[in-house]
Design a protein around this nucleic acid. Structure first.
Lengths: 167, 167
DNA sequence: CAAAAGTTTCAAAAAAAATTGAAAGTATGG
DNA sequence: CCATACTTTCAATTTTTTTTGAAACTTTTG
């Protein structure tokens, strides 16, 4: 297989995976293009490689920067902005985990916290509600802790201690 | 807070979370309704509680069954189908992990596998491609193993051995 | 400071995804 | 085998999300 074809496939696959995980296809594809590129790229490079408009490229690049997984660079003598992403997959995963935790898990936890106030009214529904939301809260807290831990863990900890434990 | 209000909030929050993770809002809400209900429910119950059409309720219930997180039950003397979900959050998480692994991670791994065939053409792009897709493949395999492990692990293993290790 | 180069914004358009509802299909019971 | 109860399907519609592209804005340079 040729490099260009491989690049196509990778960008495509990354876009599909992103879409399934609630990240817009174009955002994931921009990330894939940057991930494969040995050099940082301009907005025009990205527009061209993905065949998308300037507005679309700009908005999704901003979103990626917001997620903390793409960075801006200025090159001496150049007026354009250059963008790049980390090639370190562990760092990438940690950052995504950190952001999803902050944006999505924490709000759900606040709501589950609020729901602890609901008092059992003695009905079957009331009893069940208190019981299952309590269990759910404990579980989400546990998952949150695990994610917090993993998003701080060093690669070596994971490939070392953790993987050893799994055996 | 009253039970009914709490139920509303929970269903709403679950729908939002689902949507952010690439699961359609209604599907997540149906799951939430079943999760809170002490009894198994019929299609009509769900239509009524969420104010959705029969077609919508039916399609999303089938999808939940397909995901292995909702089950059908027949009650003696009743012609209707009754639906319920597991109240065990760990089992729920394991099942979701298992399915996402099968549906989403495995296909990406096949593609990364294919991409191992791409041979370095000596260009900068070629070298980078081989290098980063190789790292990505190693990472996705590692994550896949971890997920496979967790989706088999017992609750006690996680709250015991694993959480101990994190300290 | 004016022109040029580049970036951002956002209303409108397009595309994609979800939903409806009624017709077709299936199973159950008498 | 017919009537009834219930489930499934899917074309049409509605809703939501994404994308476009041109105007407004900002920055740099001569």
């Amino acid at each position: 297989m040729k490099i260009a074809e491989g690049q196509q496939k990778f960008v495509q696959a990354w876009g599909t995976l992103g879409a399934q995980w609630g990240i817009n296809r174009t955002m994931a594809q921009i990330h894939a293009v940057l991930f494969l590129s040995p050099e940082s790229l301009t907005t025009d490079d990205i527009m061209e490689r993905l065949g998308i408009s300037r507005g679309n490229a700009n908005m999704n690049l901003r979103a990626l920067i917001d997620w903390g997984i793409v960075f801006k660079e200025f090159k001496p003598g150049e007026r354009k902005e250059f963008f790049y992403t980390t090639k370190n997959t562990h760092q990438l995963a940690r950052q995504v985990m950190k952001e999803r935790r902050r944006r999505e898990i924490e709000p759900v936890l606040s709501i589950l916290e609020e729901l602890s106030d609901v008092k059992d009214d003695g009905t079957k529904e009331g009893k069940e509600f208190v019981k299952v939301t309590k269990e759910m809260k404990a579980f989400v807290e546990e998952a949150n802790h695990l994610a917090a831990f993993l998003s701080k863990a060093e690669k070596n900890w994971i490939t070392g201690k953790l993987l050893k434990l799994l055996k």
